[in-house]
Design a protein around this nucleic acid. Structure first.
Lengths: 201, 201
DNA sequence: TTCTATACAGACTAAATAGTCTGTTTTGAG
DNA sequence: CTCAAAACAGACTATTTAGTCTGTATAGAA
């Protein structure tokens, strides 16, 4: 029942990274929110950066695997599965009580833009997370091809990257426009696109 | 012939924002690069933020208008125009000698992710720039519809947002993967998508 | 040439903040 | 209960950095 302070710190840091970014995140405020102190944090982590990277890794892997893993299996039609997934995404929550609020966009995109050019360790992790995400989608597309539910005229990896790019860009626009209809419209266009790419020519 | 120090400061700040982001940008380093001093900068601008916003505004408007304005008029076929545009984009340069290097992604996306949730003034500007960009594409799509070069079964604004989202997301992936082929593949898929959306059903 | 406003130069200030270090409390094994 | 190791608490340090302020050079008008 008792929550581990290490986990609380990870959770709190993730929220802070998601809402304010890395450089604008203030350790003292963060420790206050987590209900601990400098000593508490530096007991578990060697630095702010170490905690931040661990937070992105743990929460990122968890969310990607739970949300994007094997969703095609839960539906008859792959495209219906994607549609349902896109409908569910805005309502998703990440680990515990940290809401995945669309108004803050995508935490991965946030960190990629701010940190990947500044720090090699961040970049390595973020690339791994993106690859993991893309690979999960690609795997499902591939098995849909193998089972004959989708055509074979497209490369699963390429289309998986296209899907992820489209989502990321849409969330960027969402973040600055604050209008959920943009997301719904774009995802509808994306599904329409995929239906054509998958079954025709 | 003699360059204005105000313009040099704008140029230098833009480069710094693009490469390091706002919070990681250091004024003293920036002034050294620009070849001036504190007094020089605060003579023209009231604060770091004021210079940063002016830099994004000037360079952003300039690039959007010059690069994305009326490109359909320069080609017979709208889709060929888009293909050509996507081919030209990685080679584009922004004002003077600041290279629009793909490895740093898109400066608009960079600032949206880092600043739009932290500062209302940044957010307002960034939204204006995105709207300006989308409106230019939408206008060209609309006139292609009017002239009969494209079908009328799609909404120009929606598709313009979809195009911009796709580009932004692709540049995010580019930034973390550092592979130009991802861009080329995604843009090829995007053009293929648009050709279907524009002419069929 | 003189004079004044613009355009700088750079030392200094003040605040924010990551990281250190010393000490105290809690916990669980023996 | 004892005691040692883990889990904190929080004052302190050191550094970074935006912004200020005083002073100087330069350019153009009269």
């Amino acid at each position: 029942m008792k929550e581990n302070m290490r986990d609380i710190l990870i959770q709190t840091m993730f929220e802070s990274l998601y809402h304010e970014g890395y450089n604008a995140s203030n350790l003292i405020d963060l420790l206050k929110k987590a209900g601990t102190s400098k000593g508490g944090m530096y007991h578990y982590f060697g630095s702010k950066k170490e905690l931040a990277i661990e937070a992105m890794r743990v929460v990122g892997e968890n969310f990607i695997d739970r949300f994007w893993g094997g969703y095609f299996e839960r539906y008859e039609d792959p495209l219906a599965a994607l549609s349902e997934l896109f409908r569910a995404l805005p309502k998703a929550t990440i680990i515990g009580d940290c809401p995945f609020d669309f108004k803050y966009g995508c935490p991965l995109n946030q960190m990629i833009q701010e940190m990947s050019a500044l720090d090699e360790d961040f970049k390595t992790l973020l690339e791994l997370l993106m690859d993991r995400w893309i690979a999960l989608i690609s795997k499902d597309l591939k098995s849909a091809q193998d089972s004959g539910q989708m055509g074979t005229s497209f490369d699963p990896d390429s289309v998986a990257r296209f899907i992820v790019s489209s989502i990321e860009g849409t969330l960027t626009l969402m973040k600055v426009k604050q209008d959920i209809r943009i997301y719904e419209e774009n995802m509808a266009l994306l599904v329409r696109t995929l239906s054509v790419l998958s079954f025709k020519d």
